[in-house]
């Protein structure tokens, strides 16, 4: 099994980098292979909204930069773990950029599912999504919005499992570690 850790933290050496190291060790310990991408060090332009990844070069973004490799790693992975500061209840711009640039991994075609229109899958693989948000201060409403966003993404990307957690920088590490273990278990990683 394979996991991709996508780190959308804005600065080096912060809390989310510790979370990333912790998760990598936990996943490796459970027999998973991992890839890691630190998005603030990637060369990645924002999506141009051209849909070239659907109708010009299907499955590949027309912009040749690091987003192509991130999209490839997403397809290779059974589990995508996103790490991001919670920004107004959503993702950091760096993390969001990687997601925006990955829509070539789904098909342009529409299907109806549970009363809503979504895109059909390009790849037949099962795919799980875990969102990990970080707040400077505890804000339950904001954390709730973050979880709703992850659930929305999971629905539109047709993930077979999805979960989210919001950590608070001032929380003791033991609390965060327990929460990460719970999330990995929810994702089917035996830790």
């Amino acid at each position: 099994m394979h996991a991709l850790l996508l780190n959308g933290a804005t600065r080096d050496g912060g809390y989310l980098d510790s979370v990333e190291r912790h998760l990598e060790a936990a996943l490796t310990g459970a027999g998973w292979e991992t890839d890691r991408v630190v998005l603030r060090r990637s060369k990645m332009a924002a999506c141009r909204g051209c849909f070239g990844c659907w109708i010009a070069t299907p499955g590949i973004c027309v912009i040749d930069d690091d987003a192509r490799e991130v999209a490839r790693l997403m397809v290779k992975s059974d589990l995508l773990v996103g790490l991001t500061p919670v920004v107004f209840g959503g993702y950091s711009a760096d993390f969001k950029k990687a997601l925006d640039r990955s829509i070539g991994n789904i098909l342009p075609f529409f299907i109806r599912q549970a009363g809503e229109v979504v895109h059909a899958r390009r790849y037949p693989y099962e795919w799980r999504l875990a969102g990990i948000g970080l707040q400077e201060r505890a804000d339950p409403d904001e954390a709730d919005l973050f979880r709703r966003l992850v659930a929305r993404n999971a629905r539109n990307f047709q993930c077979s499992r999805a979960g989210a957690t919001v950590l608070v920088e001032t929380d003791p590490w033991g609390k965060a570690a327990a929460e990460l273990t719970r999330l990995l278990e929810e994702m089917g990683v035996g830790v």
Partner: peptide, 28 residues
């Protein structure tokens, strides 16, 4: 759904790539 799907097929056909729309370049 039907309308939208016809739209994407027509867009691809205009570029002559209708049979490549479902390509899987990153297939495992």
């Amino acid at each position: 759904v039907a309308m939208g799907n016809r739209y994407w097929s027509a867009k691809a056909a205009a570029r002559g790539i209708q049979d490549r729309l479902r390509d899987r370049p990153y297939q495992r």
